[in-house]
Design a protein around this nucleic acid. Structure first.
Lengths: 102, 102
DNA sequence: TACTGCTACATCGTATCACTGAGTAGTGAC
DNA sequence: GTCACTACTCAGTGATACGATGTAGCAGTA
């Protein structure tokens, strides 16, 4: 039902700013998703790339191995909008359920 | 990350009133979770029973096969409280992410 | 009595998501 | 030269929820 929530979060982060896997993991950790680890994020990124939702650019880093920067393309922005719409819907339904609504 | 959300919804429904699988499915459908089907609900109910979160009572029905009524036990109520706490946490984090917060 | 339709429960198989854990590599500091 | 941090990859895995199907009780009707 809510599968792909973390994927949506990653899309949102990429949509706000072109960034790379390691930084996305740190950002999620800072946001409070403390148990999200790199392995998880990279599998999501690879899936996004495979599904053609992102544009990938490899750039050298001054402090380590080269980074793969991700940016949303048109399909990615549509997917992100779809995700938020779905998220709003589900959360509103669950809120309704919680307050005993019919 | 959000695994068990539907399970939490089912727990909430059972917690509000002792009820049975078919009725839970109808309730979820009425609430807007239109694509939740019986098979999904029954697997959740069997899991709840297996994990010792519910008390099950079989009662005859006047309009069909006997019904298995489910009620929360103490462990179930604790699980439900845990679920809502987790849900609040996750939704607040995602809201923060959406509005561009750090 | 045969059928149709609704209620009600059960289960097998499966797609996908996210996690675990391990590995590889570059840079800089001590 | 070893440690720490940065950075990416991948194989294996568990769990969730969905799809599809099957079984069965009851009621109406023709």
């Amino acid at each position: 039902m809510l599968k792909g929530t973390l994927e949506g979060c990653v899309l949102e982060i990429i949509g706000a700013e072109e960034t790379y896997g390691y930084a996305i993991t740190r950002r999620l950790n800072d946001l409070g998703f403390t148990d999200v680890v790199e392995g998880t994020v990279y599998t999501i990124l690879l899936r996004l790339e495979k599904n053609g939702l992102v544009q990938v650019t490899k750039r050298p880093s001054e402090v380590g191995p080269p980074r793969k920067f991700y940016a949303l393309n048109e399909a990615g922005r549509e997917e992100l909008a779809t995700f938020w719409a779905k998220w709003e819907y589900i959360t509103s339904r669950i809120a309704k359920l919680k307050e005993g609504g019919s």
